[in-house]
């Protein structure tokens, strides 16, 4: 299946001369949820802005459903909805007018029923006549989402949608994202919360200093992450694993004073209970137990640290 968004060798140099994107290649599949992770200043917003038309790439090309975002911007942009990172709303405008305005900008005729259903989904219906300045921060973010959805986009960009949002709204948001995915909408979101990427993304991309470091299926990443280590500190150092414990994947720590057991949390049985029993039977005295997991966070931190 051809990618719905194709970013090829995109460089973005700001007027200041700063290169925020250094030759980015990215393919986004139709219907997927892609989470972009990266530290502050990595270039996430710049990448999204360049795809959506807020800034033009210095070099390289971007196509959306085959349409070049610069040359054929009308067709490309018509497919996209954008929820920006910064809340920006006209303070005296009503919610309803604000959402209608966006729909109009995207060339769509008035459709009150459609807007009503969006506002209801986002629990904004009773606020439709309120001026946006009267809304709380979380509600304002919902309005931004409603605006982005007002014209029925095929691709939705969410730039840190859950920054400063409470648990309730976050849940609501993931529910909406889930529904949109069911409708076949492609969703790209940026986040600093790794759990968030874990929870909803199909694929995870890591970006740092203007470069994409990795784009991987979440399942593949999870397989790496699911692995855990149990470190068993021993009273007496040993030089070899007792034979009775041969059926376990055990390693001896370099100093010989501990055993390291690898197991998979996604398995139904981790084998920890029987291992501990067998250790006792083998006559080993344990002084401490410590588990360690390789999380997406570790992978992420490793990736980002590698390139200083």
């Amino acid at each position: 299946m051809p990618a719905i968004v194709q970013v090829s060798d995109v460089v973005k140099r700001y007027e200041s001369g700063f290169e925020a994107l250094k030759g980015v290649d990215l393919e986004i599949e139709e219907g997927e949820i892609l989470a972009l992770l990266g530290p502050n200043g990595a270039g996430k917003t710049t990448l999204i802005s360049t795809i959506c038309g807020i800034s033009h790439p210095t070099s390289g090309t971007i196509t959306v459903s085959g349409h070049d975002v610069v040359k054929n911007y009308r067709k490309a942009r018509a497919l996209i909805g954008l929820v920006p990172q910064e809340i920006a709303l006209e303070p005296f405008e009503t919610v309803w007018n604000s959402v209608s305005f966006t729909r109009g900008l995207f060339g769509k005729a008035k459709d009150d029923a459609h807007l009503e259903s969006i506002l209801r989904q986002l629990s904004l219906w009773d606020k439709k006549d309120a001026q946006t300045k009267e809304l709380s921060g979380g509600m304002k973010r919902r309005v931004l989402i409603a605006k982005a959805l007002s014209h029925g986009p095929r691709i939705l960009f969410l730039d840190e949608p859950t920054a400063g949002v409470d648990v309730e709204l976050r849940k609501d948001m993931w529910e909406i994202v889930g529904k949109l995915k069911q409708d076949g909408v492609t969703i790209i979101l940026t986040t600093h919360y790794i759990e968030e990427a874990e929870a909803i993304a199909d694929r995870v991309g890591v970006i740092n200093q203007g470069q994409i470091l990795l784009v991987e299926d979440k399942a593949t990443l999870m397989a790496q992450m699911g692995r855990k280590q149990l470190r068993i500190a021993l009273q007496e150092p040993i030089s070899a694993v007792p034979e009775s414990l041969g059926s376990y994947t055990l390693e001896i720590a370099p100093e010989g004073d501990a055993l390291v057991y690898h197991y998979d949390t996604t398995n139904e049985r981790t084998g920890i209970t029987t291992l501990l029993n067998d250790l006792q039977t083998a006559g080993l005295t344990m002084t401490d137990l410590k588990t360690q997991e390789s999380s997406l966070e570790d992978i992420f931190v490793d990736l980002v640290k590698e390139k200083p």
Partner: peptide, 18 residues
């Protein structure tokens, strides 16, 4: 000028308008 000042200009820029 106002949309530029408060940031809502992102909408004009990302919409299919000339």
């Amino acid at each position: 000028y106002f949309p530029k000042f408060i940031g809502t200009v992102y909408e004009l820029l990302s919409a299919p308008v000339s």
